[in-house]
């Protein structure tokens, strides 16, 4: 709070306004922590699908908390109830808080009605990571997919969320696309709401 001369004392901790949070953390510290998270999980799995699932689970817990926090902090204790509303909430609000910027793009899948894609040219968690050839299509963005799943599940939009590398023409590095496939009930409800 700008201009607040001294810190006000609150008798009850619940009266205290919610902190805005620190806007920046060290990228290196995060990169090392994330690298350790991946390495730790790697020692506990037999195959790549399992590793992907474990990273997703780790992200899910983050997503559930982020939803709770941001609804309170940014939305005045309200949450989005419509499909497009929650998607743009993930694409802009959540992304901004987690990665300091809005996601590069949010698109609707062309082949299926229930699919949406959030694309990022260089996903923060993948900034320093080179996937070895023998791991095939594995993407550490599974962690971010887990976060998105956590947010959507918590808000009442159950979905299957996966992370994929998509090659871009004229670029060395593929971009990462977070593919969101909503459950049938979500689309039915959405149709009912009109």
């Amino acid at each position: 709070m700008i201009g607040a001369g001294k810190i006000k004392q609150y008798a009850n901790v619940l009266d205290k306004p919610l902190s805005r949070g620190r806007q920046e953390v060290s990228l290196s510290a995060f990169a090392f922590l994330f690298s350790e998270l991946v390495q730790y999980n790697q020692t506990r799995v037999d195959n790549i699908a399992e590793l992907e699932r474990r990273l997703e689970d780790a992200g899910y817990a983050v997503g559930a908390r982020v939803l709770e926090l941001l609804c309170h902090r940014e939305k005045g204790n309200r949450r989005e109830t419509r499909l497009l509303g929650i998607l743009s909430f993930v694409h802009s609000t959540v992304w901004k808080v987690l990665f300091g910027k809005v996601a590069d793009s949010l698109e609707k899948g062309t082949e299926h009605e229930d699919e949406y894609m959030i694309s990022e040219k260089e996903l923060l968690v993948n900034r320093f990571i080179s996937i070895p050839k023998d791991m095939g299509t594995f993407n550490c963005g599974a962690f971010v997919a887990g976060i998105v799943k956590g947010v959507l599940d918590g808000a009442g939009f159950p979905a299957v969320v996966t992370a994929h590398f998509v090659p871009v023409e004229g670029q060395h590095r593929p971009r990462t696309t977070i593919l969101i496939k909503f459950a049938e009930e979500v689309l039915q409800r959405e149709a009912r709401l009109g």
Binding site: F128, M135, R173
Partner: peptide, 18 residues
Amino acid sequence: KNPFYEMEMPIRCELFDL
């Protein structure tokens, strides 16, 4: 910072080469 690199082992990281 690459979780797939093993310390003291030969470096095979695409991003490093690039």
